[in-house]
Design a protein around this nucleic acid. Structure first.
Lengths: 224, 224
DNA sequence: TTTAGAATTTAGCCTTAGCTAAATTTTTAT
DNA sequence: ATAAAAATTTAGCTAAGGCTAAATTCTAAA
């Protein structure tokens, strides 16, 4: 038989999610210190947990060598991410939260266990492909749309793009973008790049704005 | 100052909710065995927890004498019940779950912490006063509508009523009612009562049904 | 009023999931 | 090649929240 359905704790789900994010595009070893930093706890606590995840066949772990998710671990991680992002859509689209207010709430909702709930929520929201930050929502099999998004800092003058997401999604940063009237879907034209401070001059709704290099490195565009 | 906002664990919230339900209409002492039975755990575990609730001024507890919620404890209990019932409305009204499928999911959702979320959810649902089982939803201050509902077993022949809720809300019972096409809002006429087995003969949509005494003792009507 | 039985609490143990401090392994610099 | 530094793991502690078994207190019947 395939594999019994297994009940994981909140902490286990959070570790799987974090490891998934740290592995990045190509699955690879993640070291315990990186996990500890991302989760704001201590490396020794991480060691403990990855050993347990390994016992449950959710990750492979070799002492001093780092950890990597198994197919099963990755399936669960994408399931949690799927729920997180669907709930974010719900909060913004239906309850009219701002995109910078939804993360903490979605962190809680993502752990609610009910396959039927997820299915119905997905349908209710119209099977969205992206969350309010522009991140793709995995489908029930863990597959997510591939976006060829590009950082504003990597775009060249005269290029046009639509804002499709952010790299850092801290509330501070999102609120800053809100004040500039930059949102998912905002049309942006790259006017010039200043090489001396890496700032980027853009045009939004006919208005010129200068963004710092740091901001440009955290804003994703889809070129048009 | 009034009282610092306090973070409670899921277990603490569940105890407060259970004690609230067991206290019933008039606040009164609840014994540990009753709590243990309701929560399906052991009396010794309950003793432990009620001592901690008492330390936090959420309940008053005297050894061997039972436990009772303080005003603060009651406020938190009604807050959890408010969330539970609002989420049940969401699941039935928006996601089209059946009334017998929502309890377990609402048990999880009721612990999500965000005052803003509750406010917005309440508005989104149109500030409902009752959940899908006919139970009143506490407002933000813990006050809930008083329903003068009556058990079908206490109604007399010739009386007419609308089904407004159930006492036992097990999935089995709710599914049984579904098969009889009895739901919240169903109009019921009491035709006769059989004293020898306490069964009740009723008329629904022109159809005669005989309900066992046990069913009649678990179905609430509002007389009309 | 005493006492058997029921209810309740206490004591001590377990698991999860965190921590610190110490030990160990790996990496890096000389 | 080796020693110092950095990374990682192990050992042992803590708190929450459950358990069982033993001790205690309450209650009800003789």
């Amino acid at each position: 038989m395939p594999q019994m359905k297994i009940m994981l704790t909140r902490a286990e789900e959070n570790y799987l999610k974090t490891i998934y994010h740290l592995e990045g595009d190509k699955p690879q070893e993640v070291n315990t210190t990186a996990i500890a930093e991302a989760m704001e706890n201590k490396p020794s606590s991480v060691t403990d947990m990855v050993q347990r995840l390994s016992d449950k066949n959710l990750a492979t772990y070799k002492r001093y060598r780092g950890v990597r998710l198994t197919a099963r671990g990755r399936k669960i991680a994408t399931g949690v991410i799927r729920k997180h992002r669907l709930w974010e859509v719900f909060l913004v689209e239906k309850l009219h939260f701002e995109w910078d207010q939804v993360h903490d709430i979605a962190e809680q909702l993502e752990h609610v266990q009910s396959d039927e709930l997820v299915r119905r929520l997905d349908d209710y929201l119209g099977n969205p492909e992206f969350d309010p930050h522009g991140d793709p929502i995995p489908n029930a099999d863990g597959i997510m749309a591939r976006t060829e998004k590009k950082l504003l800092s990597d775009a060249t003058p005269e290029q046009m793009g639509v804002c499709v997401g952010v790299k850092e999604s801290s509330a501070d940063f999102l609120q800053y973008l809100d004040r500039l009237k930059i949102n998912i879907g905002t049309k942006i034209k790259v006017v010039a790049k200043e090489s001396f401070d890496d700032s980027v001059l853009i045009e939004v709704d006919g208005v010129l704005l200068s963004l710092s290099g740091k901001v440009a490195e955290n804003l994703f565009l889809k070129l048009i």
